[in-house]
Amino acid sequence: MALVRVRKLSRLFDVSKPWLNRVIERRSKAFLTAVSEVDFDVEARSTYALVGESGSGKSTIGKMLVGLLKPTSGVVEIEGVDLASETDAAKIDAIRSDIQMIFQDPYASLNPRWRVRDIIVEPVASRGGNTDGLAEKLLEQVGLSKQDAGKFPHEFSGGQRQRICIARALASEPNLIVCDEPTSALDVSVQAQVLNLMSDLKDDFGLTYVLISHDLTVVRHMADKIGVLYLGRLVEEAAPDALFDTPKHPYTQMLLEAAPQMDGFGREVQPPEGEIPDPINPPPGCAFHPRCPIAQDICRKERPEMRKLGETRVACHMAE
């Protein structure tokens, strides 16, 4: 059974002006569709990556997975439990300690007034668990030293802080860690250290990662399965090699073509046309049709369903 099951997941944000302005300007409420009917499964002990550009809804999905945001509609089940509808407090608590998150900005994700020890053990201490020597043990597991437990976050570099975040995420012995752009604030050489550490810990602890990133090189290196998002919709899902070698969706093709390549000296690419449309008024039919080179009439009218093409799932009328 899949560890995470996501079905028809949608999230709207109310971006209306204040009530009085709406009355005076005679406008109705406005909603931004951040995530729209997304389906996917994450197998236990695998790494599932969500990639997309800004506004693709990848971080919103991440927050819904860990329960920081409630879905507008649809279901997120973790180990068979839906946090949004479950009423059994004990079950919710058990699932909560099974899910952790690593955030993008290592400077904002550690409370500057807390000592590292208190930060790391908080997930356990807040449940009244035993925290003797826990922080020290975890610090060594993420490549820092025991003595660091008594220090404050500002005494560490960005990469070291991200290690502390990882140590905190491991404290409650979770199964699932949602990593929201875990290395995009780090320099390349430090990124390699953190990615290696994440791989090692995954093997040692049998972790499952949901990796949210805009960086295609990171995603390709880490993921077992990749979901590509565009304007809140999942447009393609495949294993890394299949996705990078034979992308099916025109958007995936465009994205891969546009990404700068380390050996692309003087590469002349035809840069992609246009930009991501306004998510408050997304285009009808397939959201990508205004930029799509192979769009037909049907793409403007009907939203494509996810369908299987070999091992790949793709939401495109034209893909083959």
Partner: peptide, 21 residues
């Protein structure tokens, strides 16, 4: 710097890392 950037050709092997910062 070059070797620590994940490359397609590398597959899933460990990334080269420069120790420290």
């Amino acid at each position: 710097l070059m070797a620590s950037t994940p490359l397609a050709s590398q597959g899933k092997s460990r990334l080269h890392q420069i120790p420290g910062a």
